[in-house]
């Protein structure tokens, strides 16, 4: 898997010729009919997973859809989602875990689409200490201090990997850190390992030089990165969301069809070195969708949160936290089997 999505040039040709002008015509018509651009604020996590949003913004797809999109940078989907929940943004980019954790407390938000899927985004980076080599297996983490970002996939991936590998997470000391705190914590020896997503994983590895290593992944986690909207926007502003999703869909197609161009945009947006961008992009699949498995995933994660004591309360009904209407209207083929 990767950003590189090969496709016959004939298909590309037809997509370009056939749809580019159609889309341009529709966009022009939309722009002409719109009295004024509709403002929308997006809280966007600084991660390669947010690439479709960056592309849509930089290529003017939002504007073409009659949207005046404002992007707010934030580190980590959990923070972006918090900004959205605080009313500072209409839509946030976030993994499914912040949705799961918030669902125990509130229901005023909903996933409107998955923009990226990843099997490998969150990595367990361990370091050697005091002359000892860095741990090579998950079992080596028993009794170690591991830093995680609370309420995110960071926390879930660590537990999944440990449990799958036969290590009781309760035998591991978990320290709650923010992504940007992890490299200093690792350097300071406060933690032996961290569970963190890109591009932080890569920068921690780089930051620690030869002392750190990435532990093999386990548990078959498939992460999703989603657009989460305030509930108050749903239905009344479904039309706006449809425009938003159409713009994102165009961006996804651009990424699939012109991966090199997309990666260039990503490097510019996140100020990444080419090697970092290439590393960070591994295992990412850019596809607009909203699948039944998202609900299954969130239900499983909610059960994990309750079981492992990360959350308390009733198991939320995640069907209510998914709003497929706008996507089904905007890109019918992408809405999947979700009803």
């Amino acid at each position: 898997m990767g950003c590189e999505v090969s496709s016959g040039w004939v298909a590309r040709f037809w997509r370009r010729v056939g749809f580019a002008w159609l889309a341009a015509a529709i966009a022009a018509a939309a722009a002409a009919t719109a009295q004024a651009a509709e403002p929308v604020t997006l809280a966007v996590s600084r991660t390669p997973l947010s690439l479709p949003v960056y592309v849509a913004q930089s290529q003017g797809y939002f504007a073409a859809e009659g949207l005046d999109a404002r992007l707010i940078d934030c580190i980590g989907g959990h923070r972006c989602m918090q900004l959205m929940l605080d009313g500072q943004a209409d839509v946030a980019t976030a993994g499914e875990l912040p949705v799961v954790f918030n669902a125990f407390k509130r229901q005023d938000h909903a996933v409107i689409a998955t923009i990226t899927t990843t099997a490998d985004d969150v990595k367990l980076v361990a370091r050697g200490g005091n002359g000892a080599p860095a741990p090579k297996a998950l079992q080596d983490l028993a009794g170690k201090r591991v830093g995680v970002v609370a309420g995110t996939s960071s926390q879930y991936v660590l537990d999944l990997a440990l449990l799958t590998s036969g290590v009781d997470p309760r035998g591991v000391t978990v320290l709650l850190l923010q992504p940007e705190e992890m490299l200093p914590a690792m350097r300071a020896g406060k933690v032996d390992a961290v569970s963190i997503w890109e591009p932080f994983a890569h920068s921690i590895l780089n930051g620690l030089g030869g002392e750190a290593s990435v532990l093999p992944s386990a548990g078959g986690y498939l992460g999703t990165f989603n657009l989460v909207a305030q509930r108050r926007l749903l239905v009344p502003r479904d039309a706006m969301l449809q425009h938003l999703l159409r713009a994102i869909d165009r961006a996804e197609r651009l990424i699939q069809q012109h991966p090199a161009e997309a990666q260039r945009l990503l490097r510019e947006q996140l100020q990444l070195a080419p090697k970092s961008a290439e590393w960070a992009c591994k295992g990412l699949s850019y596809r607009l969708g909203l699948d039944q498995s998202l609900i299954t995933t969130m239900e499983g994660q909610a059960r994990w949160a309750l079981r492992e004591g990360h959350a308390s309360g009733e198991l939320p009904n995640f069907l209510g936290l998914v709003h497929a209407g706008p996507l089904r209207q905007a890109v019918p083929n992408a809405a999947g089997s979700l009803k």
Binding site: G219, G220, Q292, T296
Partner: peptide
């Protein structure tokens, strides 16, 4: 077992979704 089973079911569901997609 619960954790792995959840993961299995989730991933199998995902497979079904992806196959559909």
């Amino acid at each position: 077992k619960e954790m792995v089973l959840d993961r299995l079911l989730t991933n199998t569901q995902a497979m079904s979704d992806y196959a559909y997609q």
